[in-house]
C-alpha cells in the first residue's frame, strides 16, 4: 500500500487512518451489543411464536400469536400489572416528595452540608440485593428494628409484611429510600440554576413564598421533575430484586410484580416461549415510556437553549 507521497505504509497506519478510526473504535462495542443484546432479543422474539420449553427435548412447533393471546387473556398477568402499577405509582410519588424536600433542604447552605449530602446519596450507590436484605431484616417482627422501636409504644410486635397493604408499603419504602436521593439530585440541579436576581426581584415585588415558588422556581425544575418521574417509572416498572428478597411476591401474590412473574415463568417454570411473549409485551411498555423520557429530555434541551 502506498500513500500519496508514494511511500509504503504499515497495516497499523492504514487501520488508524482517520477515515477508519471511528468505525474501528465502535466496532467492538457493536459486536458485543449484537452478541449480547440484539441477537438474543431477535432470537427470543422468534421463540415467542413457538411452543418451546427450555427443559423439554420436544421439537418446538410454530404457534403464531397464541402465546401472546394466552399472556393477554391470563387473569394473573393483569393482576401482576395492577400490582406493578400500584407499586410504581406509590413509589414514584413518594420519591418525588422526599426527593423534592431533600433538594429544598440542600439548596441552602448549612454546616456540614457536604458530608450530610454524601450520606443522603449513599443508598442509591448500594446494590439492590443489599437494600433488600437490609429492609427484610428491618421489617423482621421478632428482632427487626422497626418492630423493636414500635414495641416501645405498643405491647405487640409490629408485623409489617403480614398484609398485602403492609407488604406493598414495605417495598415502596425500601425503593423510595434507595432512589429519593436520585430525584433530589435532579431537582437540586434545577434549583441551583435559578438566577438569584429573580428571587431578589420577587422580594422587591413582595411576592408570597408560594407565588415565588410557582412562578420562579417551578418553571426551572419542571422539566427535571418530569425527567425524574419518567426515569424512575421505567426503572421501578422493572423492579425485581427488592421485591424478590423482601417478600418473594407475597403474601400470596400481593406484591408479585410483572418482573417477578416473568422471572418465574422463564426460569422456574421454563415456559420459554410463553415468557418470551410476556417479555415482549413488557418491552413494548418500556419502549413507550422511554420515548416519553426522550421526548422530555429533548424538550429540556430546547428550553435550556
Amino acid at each position: 500500500m502506498t500513500d500519496h507521497t508514494g511511500t509504503r505504509r504499515g497495516f497499523g497506519a492504514w487501520l488508524m487512518d482517520p477515515k477508519r478510526r471511528g468505525a474501528l473504535l465502535v466496532t467492538p462495542a457493536i459486536v458485543i451489543l449484537f452478541v449480547m443484546n440484539i441477537f438474543p432479543l431477535l432470537w427470543s422474539f422468534g421463540l415467542s411464536f413457538f411452543n418451546y420449553k427450555a427443559t423439554s427435548q420436544r421439537v418446538p412447533t410454530f404457534k403464531g400469536l397464541s402465546n401472546y393471546e394466552k399472556v393477554l387473556t391470563d387473569e394473573r398477568t393483569w393482576e401482576r400489572f395492577q400490582t406493578t402499577a400500584l407499586i410504581v405509582s406509590s413509589s414514584v410519588i413518594l420519591q418525588l416528595i422526599v426527593g423534592f424536600l431533600l433538594a429544598l433542604l440542600f439548596a441552602k447552605a448549612f454546616p456540614m452540608r457536604r458530608i450530610v449530602l454524601m450520606l443522603v446519596l449513599t443508598p442509591m450507590m448500594l446494590s439492590f440485593v443489599s437494600v433488600g436484605v437490609f429492609f427484610k431484616l428491618f421489617y423482621e417482627p421478632t428482632f427487626g428494628i422497626v418492630s423493636y422501636v414500635l414495641n416501645f409504644f405498643t405491647t405487640e410486635h409490629f408485623v409489617m409484611l403480614a398484609t398485602p397493604a403492609g407488604a406493598i408499603a414495605g417495598i415502596v419504602i425500601a425503593d423510595a429510600w434507595m432512589w429519593s436521593p436520585f430525584v433530589m439530585l435532579l431537582v437540586l440541579a434545577g434549583l441551583v440554576s435559578v438566577p438569584k436576581y429573580l428571587y431578589e426581584a420577587a422580594e422587591v415585588d413582595r411576592a408570597s413564598k408560594w407565588r415565588t415558588f410557582w412562578t420562579i422556581t417551578f418553571p426551572y425544575i419542571k422539566s427535571l421533575l418530569l425527567l425524574a418521574v419518567l426515569f424512575r417509572t421505567i426503572e421501578t416498572f422493572k423492579l425485581f430484586d427488592i421485591v424478590y428478597i423482601i417478600t418473594e411476591g407475597g403474601p400470596g401474590s400481593a406484591t408479585e410484580t410483572i418482573a417477578v412473574f416473568l422471572y418465574r415463568n422463564a426460569f422456574q417454570f421454563f415456559k420459554t416461549s410463553h415468557s418470551s411473549a410476556l417479555a415482549y409485551i413488557v418491552l413494548f411498555i418500556v419502549i413507550v415510556l422511554t420515548n416519553l423520557y426522550l421526548y422530555s429530555v429533548n424538550r429540556r434541551a430546547e428550553e435550556v437553549d
Binding site: 417482627p141 421478632t142 418492630s147 408485623v159 409484611l161 403480614a162 407475597g250 403474601p251
Partner: peptide, 8 residues
Amino acid sequence: PPVAKTGQ
C-alpha cells in the same frame, strides 16, 4: 413467633 404471620 410473629414472622409466621408474614409467610416468611
